[in-house]
Computed example of a mutant assay.
Amino acid sequence: MTRTYAMVGTPCQITAATLMDRYTGDFPVELKLGLFCMENFSYTYLKKLAEEEGIDLADVSEFRIEKGRLWFHLNDGSKISVPLERARSAMRKNCTVCMDFTSEQSDISIGSVGSPEGWSTIIIRTEKGHELIEKARKAGYIETKPLTERGIRILEKLASGKKEENLQEIKRRESVARPVLYWRVMPDEEYLEEVTDYQFDDLRSDVIDVGACVLCGACVASCPENIVSIKDRKPEVHGECPEGCNACYVACPRTYVPDSIIGHDSASTPLGEYIEFLSARAPMFRGQDGGVVTALLTYALREGIIEGALVVDRDHEKPWKPLPVLAEEPQDIVKAAGTKYSACPLLKILKE
């Protein structure tokens, strides 16, 4: 019997989950909580950046990106920041072609932008998401209030800015024969015909070898033969793909994505489709931005809505190195709280 999970992911991970749900068969993730994300960092280069500032990542309690700076909050209560322009040296280059700031394919999008300190901004996108928010609110897990018009304008400005800036990078890459496949207009019928015969070799040439891999783990999770793995931060295949199998290719959020999943009318819909904007906080949980993600997952798990959640914890042998885990107990969800700013193959945990 298929189990029912939730996941917390960045926009590219949420898109991958949406593709897997639609095109690769039995998919256990029923609830998608998407995070706001402007960019992500390479763990290796983030660690190097910290060392250049005299910071040991073991001494960092949390990271924040605020007012054009990357902030390191230290265990002793002090803070050190670097200009975001300098921190961009540690940014994963594939982030510069991402057009999604607010995880537009999620059921609920969550982030700090637009809400007061100690609160999270919530974008409810589906009826499933709306139902969870209402139940969690009535059960006392979260408090909500309408997001202010000013908060919405700030969100729209940041989302539009990311789309405009990264669209220029997409055009630049296309002009030098480095295609950005996922942003090419392709109706569903044309998409299905295009990807029919594509396999891992095509994924390697179209995505991995050109530096477009987002390290989401979807190729690992979708492979029915279990012959795809991630080594040295790159997907690789061990063996021959079965004839007619294109699972890894269609699951990847950086290959072709049909118009029905990613809309191309960015100017008029910078935040994607939505039902409602809210500010929320979770009084009984401590979190980086109001504890709302932790509260929603804990409520859903305790009420039997989900049987577990795909979340990102920390590798405690390598401070702040992200570690994908399947949290099946409330304490595991609480333990994984807090934003990690490095890429993580979250979806591969479905095969583990």
Score class of each variant (00 low, 15 high):
263 G>A: 13
4 T>S: 12
251 A>R: 05
275 I>S: 12
115 S>A: 15
177 A>W: 08
13 Q>C: 04
75 N>Q: 11
184 R>L: 00
336 A>D: 10
107 D>G: 05
22 R>Y: 08
34 G>S: 03
301 L>G: 06
141 Y>R: 11
40 N>F: 15
311 V>D: 09
85 E>N: 12
169 E>A: 00
27 F>K: 03
309 A>F: 14
182 Y>P: 00
240 E>Y: 08
98 C>S: 02
205 S>E: 12
248 C>K: 04
21 D>H: 11
56 D>Q: 10
114 G>A: 04
258 P>T: 10
76 D>G: 05
238 H>G: 10
299 Y>G: 00
177 A>D: 15
5 Y>K: 01
126 T>V: 14
70 L>S: 02
152 I>L: 15
105 Q>E: 11
204 R>M: 09
186 M>H: 09
169 E>T: 10
294 T>M: 09
87 A>M: 13
133 I>S: 09
200 F>I: 12
214 V>N: 08
40 N>S: 07
347 L>I: 13
72 F>W: 07
296 L>H: 01
318 K>F: 12
186 M>C: 12
225 E>W: 15
218 A>P: 05
227 I>W: 04
65 I>H: 00
253 P>L: 10
276 E>P: 11
133 I>R: 04
327 A>W: 05
158 L>W: 02
319 P>E: 01
339 T>V: 02
174 E>K: 04
284 M>Q: 07
61 S>E: 08
223 C>E: 15
227 I>V: 06
312 V>H: 00
52 E>R: 09
51 E>G: 07
169 E>L: 03
19 L>H: 06
45 Y>N: 14
167 L>W: 08
84 L>N: 08
179 P>G: 10
239 G>W: 02
26 D>C: 01
56 D>C: 07
32 K>I: 11
23 Y>D: 10
302 R>P: 01
143 E>Y: 06
276 E>S: 08
296 L>V: 04
262 I>Q: 12
278 L>S: 08
79 K>A: 13
128 K>D: 11
67 K>H: 11
11 P>W: 00
56 D>T: 03
276 E>V: 03
238 H>I: 14
129 G>S: 04
184 R>V: 06
88 R>I: 11
132 L>S: 02
244 G>L: 07
312 V>P: 06
264 H>C: 13
186 M>E: 05
26 D>Y: 03
68 G>D: 11
212 A>E: 07
198 Y>F: 15
